[in-house]
């Protein structure tokens, strides 16, 4: 239970799709002019991530990982189909998006009308493929956790696009320098929001020495600091 909660909050705030790893930036910038459309796209992203991440987890577990083909028989245990993962993941995503579109259109026309136009757009949204690839590279252990990861990183993306859309609606009344208007200021605001989100970094690792490193970028920074500290330590040693 505790690991579910931990993954949930970590994927929403610390490893936020937009602010920590810049995924789905294209649609994030293009569809964030109005809050209403942003909500529609955000909901569609949660929906599709919740379906594709667990599905790709099953694919990864039973087809792609080294030795995953064991269930076929002992002679298949040595196969490693890992190099096929990109093509499998993207094919799953593209077909699932199409399938979801058809099913939603049939059973819930009202939901289709609100999500409809965004669904095809989502097949090429980096956040969706990124969700599956991060699920693979972080070696998420169980189906439940993969489902959790899909939903929570979707919620993180939803929050981000909702916030930027609200800010962009307000900023129209501000005196922004002309060359910075539109795209430029959106980039800078997103950067500032990202800095704000960095402060969530201490939420899970605070006081816990053995906590695993979080995102790749921050991990790199941590490594860098450690290197500095080591150098400093060596330095003080040599002074001694």
């Amino acid at each position: 239970m505790i690991e579910h909660l931990e993954l949930f909050f970590k994927s929403i705030f610390i490893d936020n799709m937009v602010f920590a790893v810049f995924l789905g930036m294209c649609s994030y910038l293009a569809v964030s002019k109005k809050v209403a459309t942003a909500v529609g796209l955000g909901a569609a992203v949660i929906f599709v991530l919740a379906i594709t991440v667990p599905l790709n987890w099953l694919l990864d577990q039973y087809l792609l990982q080294p030795g995953a083909l064991k269930w076929l028989g002992a002679e298949y245990a040595d196969y490693d189909l890992g190099f096929l993962s990109f093509i499998m993941f993207i094919a799953t995503i593209a077909t699932m998006v199409q399938l979801v579109e058809i099913v939603v259109e049939k059973f819930s026309p009202s939901l289709y009308n609100s999500l409809g136009i965004f669904l095809p757009l989502i097949a090429v949204n980096c956040a969706i493929l990124g969700g599956s690839l991060f699920m693979q590279s972080r070696e998420i252990e169980s189906f439940g956790l993969a489902l959790n990861y899909g939903i929570s990183s979707g919620i993180g993306w939803f929050l981000a696009i909702l916030a930027i859309a609200a800010i962009r609606e307000k900023i129209r009344y501000s005196a922004v320098p002309a060359p910075l208007r539109g795209l430029g200021i959106t980039f800078i605001i997103t950067g500032l929001m990202g800095i704000g989100f960095l402060s969530f970094g201490g939420m899970l690792t605070g006081g816990d020495e053995e906590a695993e490193p979080t995102t790749e970028p921050t991990a790199k920074v941590e490594k860098f600091e450690v290197k500095e500290e080591n150098k400093l330590a060596e330095n003080t040693k040599s002074i001694d």
Partner: peptide, 15 residues
Amino acid sequence: LMPPMALIIVGLIIW
């Protein structure tokens, strides 16, 4: 080295 700075630099390039 923090990720958000990349966004701010691109914003400045646009400017």
